[in-house]
Design a protein around this nucleic acid. Structure first.
Length: 635
DNA sequence: GTAGGGTTAG
């Protein structure tokens, strides 16, 4: 009997997993009672005294077991054969198995089969609807999934907690936040508002739409917390760049006794990367090792990123080399590390190694990281060649960011007219980042003509971004057009655009000391300002001239000079000179790009005081030794 | 039977 069944189902691969009885059974005239086909494999149990219902139930269990195995082993062919057999015995359209088959087909990306089963089900229950929506969501078919949600609600099917979780998750993946908010209103009217899965997906929705306050409210309103909901909220802060908040919340939850897993550690490490909090990062690494969760690739990737963003590339490489298995993210993180440090040669070597090993396929991020690495490494020619090859080879879809990298490369090479031509001819509509990149290059190469064109486009696209007005001022300043600079400043006032405040920080042990431009918020600010003045006098004697054009305020030169001395990176640098160990480099972080004057100041400081400086700004590391910077004065 | 959080780049 077992042989007959397996022959029928062609299930050699899975027969050992299906627990059919080997008992002999009599031939049936008709099975199940309403079957249109009597020549079907009979069930494996004695039917002499069985009722129709018992026969049906038994068969039901056998199909159930069979499909369960198909799903767990992704055996779609066996599922299809089973389905055709079930149709003959009129099982499939009775509803119960529809859901299972849908799950199987969607898992194996057989969308047509799944849709067909779904379409042919006379009574779709909530499970089938949810399975279909979830399947489309997981495969990235968001429109199809959203369409089904509407259809389900119209059909009068009541969503359950699984459905709500799935639909909220769908809205998050599809960036349909308004839709998600409407679903939240529905959830409020249902008994599932305080369900932990529903709540976690809701808080994730709010966090990913940038509404971290709403996310926190949902989190605080949860009747219970678990590792997923806690990780979701910590991750929400970290993804929005609210690194300190993420770290504080993590510590608070830890004090409250919450236990975490590798996903949480990956998120917290991301926050620590943002803060460049090396000591905390090292401690977190130790903790991950003790938790025996260090071999998850996501954690290792986060460790690579954390060490590289803290400026310790050697440690990052050590993690990378020790990995048993690497994902494309591991390679991208390591390549990004070298790029950020301006080590173009290492980017080339590692990229070649990746190609040689041929275990992982490069993706769009790899291409972007490598291009950006060439740009930071001052390898314009190779970078442009690399882009041309990648563009003609296909394989990776080129996005606007890739074109942005090319603008960077051309800009860095000082080919501003060519860069402008490239922007005009590129197949994608240039966005603010593209024009911003071109504008930055014009500022560095003092090209007023192209700079003005870029600035005009930029302000048209992003009139609300204060940074763009600052850049425009910089361009006018290039040409000594102070009248125009004043006009732009008035325009900024009119539009009430506010520049993101500059912030620099430095770690002493585990404490991060933060300085804001012109602010006296730090307890030692008086001494620090005094120290900046003293350093300024010494470097001036060595040839440093303050770059007064970096000050956009309409004040006299003396006031401009004072404003420059109050820049946050100078305050952090002075604080470091006063307190950091003399044998080690001084490491400073800044949330924005380093200003031209501070960069020059730092170079003189490194020479006059014979100190090695490592400054991480928004886009890269500046490794300054003896008056020279690893960025070759282009950033 | 159907469900929630994660790592690089930007």
């Amino acid at each position: 009997m077992l042989r007959r069944i397996t022959q029928f189902f062609h299930l050699r691969n899975i027969r050992s997993f299906v627990n059919f009885s080997t008992h002999q059974s009599p031939k049936l005239d008709s099975f199940p009672p309403n079957s249109p086909n009597s020549n079907i494999a009979a069930p494996s149990f004695n039917l002499n005294h069985a009722s129709s219902q018992e026969i049906y139930d038994r068969r039901f269990m056998e199909y159930d077991a069979l499909l369960r195995e198909c799903v767990s082993r992704n055996h779609v062919k066996a599922g299809q054969t089973t389905q055709s057999h079930m149709i003959k015995t009129s099982y499939v359209l009775r509803g119960y198995f529809g859901g299972r088959l849908i799950v199987l087909y969607l898992k194996c990306a057989y969308f047509d089969d799944a849709q067909k089963v779904f379409d042919e089900m006379p009574h779709r229950n909530v499970v089938s609807w949810t399975a279909m929506i979830s399947g489309y969501n997981k495969s990235g078919f968001y429109n199809e999934a959203l369409h089904l949600v509407v259809e389900m609600l119209r059909s009068g099917t009541n969503p359950n907690e699984f459905t709500f979780t799935t639909v909220v998750n769908l809205c998050t993946s599809a960036s349909q936040f308004e839709c998600g908010r409407q679903i939240h209103s529905l959830i409020v009217k249902s008994p599932f508002e305080s369900h932990i899965y529903v709540g976690s997906s809701l808080l994730d929705l709010y966090a990913k739409s940038g509404k971290i306050h709403d996310a926190r409210l949902v989190f605080e309103g949860l009747p219970e917390r678990d590792v997923v909901s806690c990780t979701a909220i910590v991750s929400g802060y970290a993804q929005l760049g609210l690194d300190q908040e993420a770290l504080d919340l993590f510590c608070q939850l830890q004090r409250e006794g919450m236990t975490f897993n590798y996903v949480t550690y990956a998120c917290v490490l991301t926050a620590l990367s943002g803060l460049a909090a090396f000591e905390h990062g090292r401690q977190m690494h130790g903790r991950v090792l003790r938790s025996h969760q260090s071999f998850y690739i996501a954690v290792e990737n986060s460790l690579i990123d954390m060490y590289s963003k803290c400026g310790y590339l050697v440690y990052a490489r050590r993690i990378f080399d020790a990995m048993c298995e690497r994902s494309v993210i591991s390679w991208n993180a390591m390549l990004g590390g070298y790029g950020r440090h301006g080590d173009g040669e290492a980017v080339v070597d590692l990229y070649c190694q990746m190609k040689e090993e041929n275990k992982v396929k490069a993706d769009g991020t790899t291409l972007l990281t490598v291009l950006s690495g060439f740009s930071h490494g001052g390898m314009e020619r190779i970078g442009l060649q690399f882009f041309d090859e990648a563009a003609s080879a296909g394989g990776v879809n080129l996005g606007i960011e890739h074109y942005g990298c090319v603008v960077d490369l051309l800009g860095r090479a000082g080919q501003l007219e060519r860069a402008l031509q490239f922007v005009k001819e590129m197949p994608l509509e240039p966005n603010a980042a593209i024009w911003g990149s071109l504008l930055g290059a014009c500022r560095a190469h003092r090209d007023f003509r192209v700079g003005k064109i870029a600035a005009d486009h930029l302000l048209e696209i992003e009139p609300e971004n204060a940074g763009n007005y600052v850049m425009l001022c910089n361009v006018y300043a290039l040409d000594g057009r102070w009248h125009e600079v004043r006009k732009v400043r008035l325009l900024m006032k009119d539009k009430a655009v506010v520049k993101e405040p500059g912030k620099s920080w430095i770690a002493l042990g585990q404490t991060l000391h933060t300085f804001y431009a012109g602010s006296q918020s730090h307890p030692n600010s008086e001494e620090v300002l005094y120290k900046v003045g003293e350093m300024s006098d010494r470097v001036k004697a060595a040839g440093y001239t303050p770059d007064l054009s970096s000050v956009l305020h309409d004040v006299d030169d003396e006031q401009k000079g004072r404003a420059l001395l109050g820049h946050c990176e100078k305050l952090a640098l002075a604080f470091g000179m006063m307190n950091a160990c003399e044998a080690k480099p001084i490491r400073i972080m800044k949330n924005l790009r380093i200003c031209v004057d501070c960069h020059s100041f730092a170079k003189f400081v490194s020479q006059v005081y014979r100190r090695e400086l490592i400054i991480r700004d928004k886009s890269r590391f500046h490794h300054i030794v003896n008056g020279k910077c690893s960025c070759s004065d282009y950033w």
